[in-house]
Design a protein around this nucleic acid. Structure first.
Lengths: 264, 264
DNA sequence: CAGTGGTCTAGACCACACT
DNA sequence: GTGTGGTCTAGACCACTGC
């Protein structure tokens, strides 16, 4: 591979007397460029969550680089949890619909007992309505104030005991057609529903956690006295290319559960 | 490299009529074995935090594998934050003493303003004494109940306002000689002190987070009324090879700060 | 300049899954 | 068996650092 067409090094061979370009080298390794191209295909929906993408050799031929270079690109996408490799089978677009990855973003675990031998979460939709985005919500979702958003409010319970009260804001355009029924009828992770119904895949998220006291509105919904300390978890979730797609504020009861985090 | 001496594939060529070894394949790729060997050298203190380790070619010669294989081993150790690569210079043993990595395990950030343009944390040691390990502490630190442990209690404040009250338990043997003075005299991260004074490097940690109300003892130390919701952060930290080396319970004020977490 | 890590390639072979 | 990802090697060249 002498010089694939998509390579563009900043310092061109020609015109060395040009303005010396103080800005940035803008050099990026081939495998990074390949990574970007694959990402673009993911974003464009060329391969959907759960799909198998072409083999490393096919992609190498398509992008006109060696298989090893594609491999390195896929390696990074796999460690970012965007792709999943399965030896002997192929490489697949990651999805929230699988058993294994199902509750990847839910960090609230029971204090005792095994991880998820509790019954599945019982969901109760309290509210689901179209609305104009408040300033703060709009800012975080990269919308304009007043743009259409969906507001959802629900309670999650385990074995009949409420554990989580959460409120979600979703941008109106990509989630057009989402209703309380859609949510209520669905079983399985909400992020899996987003994938299949709206083609929106959540890739990463940032959470801000605080301790707060239950207010008069939340307390009865969670079945605790007002003032009970709760975890406030504010999450901003992103799709491909760091596009914010969901703002969520959860109140977690932590009397029998805890938020688990790994540091490294 | 036909067959380096340290390779040991489970299914040997000889004696195919042997007992078929139901247990496990026990196969591990060469680069994993190299990773283990490097890890062993780190653990043995052959290279200390901050040191430069031998070049990839030197290690390749030493382990009698190709440079690419060493590279892959180092790659993984680097993504685990055990090693740090510096182009043109070498590969170094990671340390908590650097500016960049300084507060890697502290996730409490101010709600407003830039990350750490607040003054450095002010530390106040409240207690530091040798003690016999209570059952629960012993269990988590993989000691026996009654073994010697060090118990430390301190308050961290920013700009004069207390933010964190924490209590630490450290195994007595590796931390022999740790006193309140050692801690008080030191400036800089505690984990850096552990490295230089005791040769203990913290590599990863697990935290369990709950919301609790300030009790009568903690409230005045943090300057809040009793009952104020606080984040309870229980951390178990490990050195190389997943040896637990510190148990820490922190109470965080989150009225002007939040615990930040990234999900992916 | 020499020494280090970083990238890219090409080919061989292994392990696994399906058919 | 065929096709997939996984490992290992060897060599070439690039980019950065410091003498």
């Amino acid at each position: 591979m002498a010089t694939p067409s998509h390579i563009s090094t900043a310092s061109a061979d020609a015109s060395p007397a040009e303005a010396p370009d103080n800005t940035a080298p803008a050099f990026s390794p081939l495998y990074q460029q390949i990574k970007t191209l694959i990402l673009r295909s993911l974003q464009a929906g060329e391969w959907k969550p759960g799909d198998m993408i072409p083999s490393e050799f096919d992609l190498a031929a398509r992008f006109r680089v060696s298989q090893g270079t594609v491999r390195k690109a896929i390696d990074e996408l796999a460690t970012d949890n965007l792709l999943v490799r399965r030896q002997g089978k192929g490489t697949f677009v990651a999805t929230h619909a699988e058993q294994h990855t199902q509750y990847r973003f839910l960090r609230l675990l029971p204090d005792t007992g095994t991880l998820q031998d509790q019954g599945p979460a019982e969901r109760r939709i309290i509210e689901c309505r179209r609305q104009r985005a408040p300033a703060e919500v709009a800012r975080q979702l990269a919308l304009r104030t007043g743009d259409a958003v969906l507001q959802v409010k629900r309670v999650l319970a385990f074995d009949g005991v409420p554990a989580i009260l959460e409120e979600l804001w979703l941008p109106g355009v990509p989630f057009k057609g989402l209703t309380a029924e859609t949510l209520a009828d669905d079983k399985g992770p909400m992020y899996a529903l987003f994938e299949t119904q709206f083609g929106v895949r959540m890739v990463r998220a940032v959470e801000k956690i605080k301790a707060v006291g239950a207010d008069a509105e939340s307390a009865p919904l969670l079945g605790v006295p007002a003032g009970t300390p709760l975890l406030s978890v504010e999450r901003l979730a992103f799709t491909y290319n760091d596009e914010p797609m969901e703002l969520r504020r959860g109140l977690y009861r932590t009397d029998a559960r805890h938020y688990r985090n790994e540091l490294s």
